[in-house]
Amino acid sequence: MRISVNGTPENTDELTVASLILVKTGRLDGIVVEYNGSVLKKVLWDSTYLKENDELELLSFVGGG
């Protein structure tokens, strides 16, 4: 299915938000997800199934002053 991740369209076979994150980033800690415009709590990642045209923003903390 086609989804958008961090503003870039892509095709994915991953079923859940959690598995997508793991595949894309190699980790689950220190990541924040905006799922279709609102923050998705971490406890819901496993039970949130991806569907066509989903928009995800994967964010993480970086160095900054």
């Binding site: 961090n6 503003g7 894309k24 980033t25 190699g26 990541i31 924040v32 923003e57 994967l58 964010l59 993480s60 903390f61 970086v62 160095g63 900054g64 002053g65």
Partner: peptide, 12 residues
């Protein structure tokens, strides 16, 4: 302080 950014998938 820390900042928040989109994850950069290439940088690991």
């Amino acid at each position: 302080t820390v900042a928040l950014r989109r994850v950069d998938f290439s940088a690991g």
